[in-house]
Nucleic acid binder design. Sequence first.
DNA 1: TCCCAATTTGCAAACGATTTGCAATTAAAC
DNA 2: GTTTAATTGCAAATCGTTTGCAAATTGGGA
Lengths: 151, 151
Amino acid sequence: MKPQPQDRPRPEPSLSALTSRLRRQAHKVTGPRQAVLEILRRHPHPLTNREIFAALPPGQCDLATIYRAMHLLEEMGMVKRFDFGDGAARFELVGEGDDGHHHHLVCTRCAEVVEIAECFPGEIERRIAAANGFKNVTHKLEFFGVCPECQ
Amino acid sequence: MKPQPQDRPRPEPSLSALTSRLRRQAHKVTGPRQAVLEILRRHPHPLTNREIFAALPPGQCDLATIYRAMHLLEEMGMVKRFDFGDGAARFELVGEGDDGHHHHLVCTRCAEVVEIAECFPGEIERRIAAANGFKNVTHKLEFFGVCPECQ
DNA sequence: TCCCAATTTGCAAACGATTTGCAATTAAAC
DNA sequence: GTTTAATTGCAAATCGTTTGCAAATTGGGA
């Protein structure tokens, strides 16, 4: 079996590598932030704030704090936000220097998520931008279907 | 200037054509439903429930009723739901027999919306489905950028 | 090592979109 | 017209997310 996209050998960054990124931008390295980063580091999958909260040792930190942490990490580009259309934002750690742009294939039955390498063709996007006079055009793209187990 | 996608000459269906579609499926043709359809008919753009509500003559019907109407219309395939990532669902009337699949280019400054003809290549989608063993794969795709006026 | 100021947190309340329970109303068939 | 199931309005409930504020904490400097 040849490697599939989901077998991506993305090396999880060490926690200290992550916190140093915080420090470098003059943000405090607090317990809650480290805890959140540790969860994200261990789950190379899009996670909702509530899932992160649930994965945390009880009493570790407040849900509101997680929301605030995700905003900060998103602004810093350390995390990328995804929207699977179910009303809850999901986040994934983004490698340093990477923009984290990629897509997912989500099972509409069991919510299994597979990372997809393919992307909307850049030339077509450029053509769309040009045809309408838009600048800085990006896109959000997610795939939905029924996974093998759920069929 | 050659025709652009947004110049689409989509002929709005008559209100009676719409209500007959309701009747045909044994759903009652009520005041609120007609009012909602009338608004959708006149606005060939994705509208939020609140926007529909605001476009209605005051006291015409309750916001909750609009939510219920949109659910019904969506189930019937008379309307298609879009998600621009701002937390509010948007709806567009779908022609009979059509599946309404298309995409938009949204200005991140002023929220202007342009309908886009282009779509994610079907063969690639099929390849993605096959490679992961998924069935019934579809996608959600929206473009975001800055429109000419807002640049 | 201790101190200070700015940042960050917990908690509870506020929010906006959406859903729901329920009694009153209404469309459509008889 | 009557009848009945579908539909509505209204208010309360949910859910994800945000925010005000006082208390706790971090990190730099004395």
